[in-house]
Design a protein around this nucleic acid. Sequence first.
DNA 1: CGTTAGCACTCTCCTCTAATGAGTGCCAAC
DNA 2: GTTGGCACTCATTAGAGGAGAGTGCTAACG
Lengths: 338, 338
Amino acid sequence: MLTERQLEIVLSVVYEYIQTGEPAGSRTISKKYLRGSSAATIRNEMADLEEMGYFYQPHTSAGRLPTSKAYRLYVDSIMQRRRTAPAETEQWAKDIRERKVGVESILSYVSELLGKATNCVGMAALSALDEVEIQRINFVRLGGSAVLLLVVLDAGLVHHTNIQLPCDLSQDVLDDIARKISTVACGRPWSQVRGALATYVLSGLEDVWDTCREAVVQIDLLLNHKTSRLFVGGAQHILNLPDFQDIGKIQAVLSLLEQENSIADMVERYSINQGVSVTIGDENTEEEMKDCSLVLVPSAGYGRRTVLGLIGPQRMDYEKSIAILEAIAENLNDSLVQ
Amino acid sequence: MLTERQLEIVLSVVYEYIQTGEPAGSRTISKKYLRGSSAATIRNEMADLEEMGYFYQPHTSAGRLPTSKAYRLYVDSIMQRRRTAPAETEQWAKDIRERKVGVESILSYVSELLGKATNCVGMAALSALDEVEIQRINFVRLGGSAVLLLVVLDAGLVHHTNIQLPCDLSQDVLDDIARKISTVACGRPWSQVRGALATYVLSGLEDVWDTCREAVVQIDLLLNHKTSRLFVGGAQHILNLPDFQDIGKIQAVLSLLEQENSIADMVERYSINQGVSVTIGDENTEEEMKDCSLVLVPSAGYGRRTVLGLIGPQRMDYEKSIAILEAIAENLNDSLVQ
DNA sequence: CGTTAGCACTCTCCTCTAATGAGTGCCAAC
DNA sequence: GTTGGCACTCATTAGAGGAGAGTGCTAACG
């Protein structure tokens, strides 16, 4: 639909804008990127492309700014190229390895590292917890029918929640139930256990059936969120960017970051893709994200259940960001095995 | 050292500046606060007070701005007055009560609530965990000598960390050790258990002495930080304040907030006082806080081991902030008992 | 001697104006 | 289809002038 030259112009304008932060004019594009065509030619093309929805002008006598549609073209073209890992990769890998062990502390560190390296907000999430091996399940009586449900997953990941059981049981009985559930559950991911457990509970634990049933429901709730553990870091770095000089934009992002659920939803929604997923400006459903982009990369780490991501301005350096994200995601593998 | 009138002037200038955000001039003070004295008189006094370090001028022909020293006087005078609980107290208490149970989720909500109500950054911290009753101690074998140490405290508070034990023990042995330690520890705070446990370990568990010793050391580490659990919320609200129009200031605060340790240190340092503790501008040791104030209030909630706090501009409405902090701190009591 | 009125002075802030310059749209020529 | 030329638009910047707030100082008053 676009001619070769039109495509080149779109990509050049996006690239130029990403580099300089200024609207790109026909003269600049002609001089720096399409030396074969004169400014006037570019000008005509640009007018057409604006009509087609790739550009807009902040005011009549300014250069062109790319729309989400143009960024989309740009990102798609980047994705087809090979990316070279950034030079600092080795250093980052070392930094991560030297961190104190534990999935959570590593991911928290990684999110900050991502933020610092890209000047975006870094994110690291554990997704699909029901695919991770269960190590242990415990109930701790808190008083009355309130009980603490404690699930330890592979690699020392702890999830817990306060629940209400249908009746007040002693700690001994709770321990007994936990032991029986553990017999079935331990060493297997919840997704495999769920069905088996229902049968088992029905057959072997009739006397405390209500309690067990509720316990299973609660474990299910706890592990069934696709994204159950989210680390966000390096938020202060976006303030370095000229795109976030506007207090209103900062506030939009900050308020979004405080709603952990929204972010988790986004991660869940877009991380179903196998590879890198980039959601640009308008493509986001969240109002606060209309000026921003979201980049997500599933990581090899932790049994392929980790997602790394960035939230940054629509005008982010996608090439660099994606390269960094991929490099760190790759490295996470080794660090999280331990 | 200050005459009655001088004190009145200092308090008036601080009050006026907090209300309006503008430097206060002699005329304004004379008209609004000290009707008995003329502007010229106030002017003379103000020049003296400036020399004494209570005021400064942003430029020659502007009114006076209060220094930290003046704020200190103002806050001290507030602290002597009775404060009336804000009207929204009832609503807040209800909101907190309706939240899903669990210390952590409540404190997280409270920190956001504080932020929203005061336009400052809200904080809620659990301090002195070694004073909180232990409910259960567990070790979960992660592989090799890596072990997950899990401590459940009163009210469903879970603390855990990955540790390395001196040798590789089976889960059964670990469970056995955990059971023995629990016998001594459960139902008592760690501070009371620490000594007793050392003796007990020495006498009854010779065969796994090394392991037990290490375990005790690690539990000690885990619980011995005075402030071990910190929730920060509502950061986006400070952007509403005119004091934070400067991106640099926002960045200073944000970067401070990301270093959980620094905040924990501050909370620990100042929360040893019994009552409300206010640290104003220069009085802070952290460079990033020189333009900000920190207000901390120990809460009745959770066995008096909770600290609520605010980080806001030096020019915050201390009277309102402290009243809100105290009201919520008071209410937390009921909510956290459950 | 403390208090007050008066006055000159300073400095910020706002508005208005003019100049600059980047970039466009369009037209006519190649 | 491409290009050079030209008029036009609009944001940005700098400078000038005036208004307003507030001070410091001085001299007079009780």
